[in-house]
């Protein structure tokens, strides 16, 4: 049964998840772009493109002094995202997956770096969840989707780390759980806040372009 389940998540399950993810993301992003913007009749005071691109770059380095979100959220958020990217793109097993699907590959990072990144990402996510519960403003602003997307992002990290160190269950069980949790994430991502993995750069460009057009240099 375990082998059959693993075979399904490595085969049909992954096909379904990838298809839903790509369909959902292409549909949502293209639909978003097709909404378009109302033509401004005012004379431009600056370039939309330079403003847009500048904001896409600059928003990657949020100043904690200027942010209303506070140091904790910004720093923990950064740690999570960086840790997540390192484990996703630089673990040798993941590179093997990209090689098999996209025919692209690149050098892996040492296992120690991956371990530290994964632990930091997991720790940051737990801390952010606790903060979401404890902070009254955050708690009030949170709805079910925040908790759902947290869980969907957390499970692949947790099962992946457990798999790498074979903690708690057998390898085959953990591998099946890990792949299944990623598939769940892929299926849900395009239709929830997790779509920000693509839309965040579009919205940054939009904001930057509006400001650039008006000649505002931020």
């Amino acid at each position: 049964m375990e082998q059959e389940l693993l075979l399904w998540v490595r085969g049909t399950g992954l096909q379904i998840a990838a298809a839903v993810f790509v369909f959902g993301m292409v549909y949502r992003m293209l639909h978003l772009l097709m909404l378009g913007r109302k033509m401004s009749l005012a004379a431009p005071r600056g370039s939309e493109w330079s403003g847009g691109l500048r904001t896409m770059w600059k928003r990657s380095f949020v100043s904690t002094k200027l942010s209303a979100r506070g140091n904790f959220t910004v720093i923990a958020g950064f740690i999570f995202h960086i840790g997540f990217f390192i484990t996703l793109f630089f673990l040798s097993q993941h590179i093997e997956l990209f090689r098999a699907v996209l025919s692209l590959h690149w050098p892996a990072m040492p296992r120690g770096v991956i371990d530290i990144s994964a632990v930091l990402a997991i720790g940051a996510m737990v801390a952010l969840l606790v903060h979401r519960f404890v902070d009254p403003v955050k708690r009030l602003l949170s709805d079910y989707q925040d908790y759902l997307t947290w869980a969907l992002s957390f499970l692949p990290l947790l099962t992946g780390f457990m798999l790498l160190r074979e903690i708690g269950f057998e390898y085959i069980t953990l591998l099946t759980l890990h792949i299944a949790s990623v598939e769940l994430l892929l299926v849900v991502a395009p239709f929830t806040k997790l779509a920000h993995m693509f839309s965040t750069f579009i919205s940054r460009w939009y904001n930057g372009a509006v400001n650039g057009f008006k000649g505002i240099n931020i």
């Binding site: 075979l7 490595r10 085969g11 049909t12 992954l14 096909q15 379904i16 990838a18 298809a19 839903v20 993810f21 790509v22 369909f23 292409v26 097993q93 993941h94 093997e96 997956l97 090689r99 098999a100 699907v101 996209l102 591998l175």
Partner: peptide, 16 residues
Amino acid sequence: PLPAPTADVSSAAKAA
């Protein structure tokens, strides 16, 4: 290797 899919994921994704 074990992480590699056992089915054609690329074609499914392209069609999607």
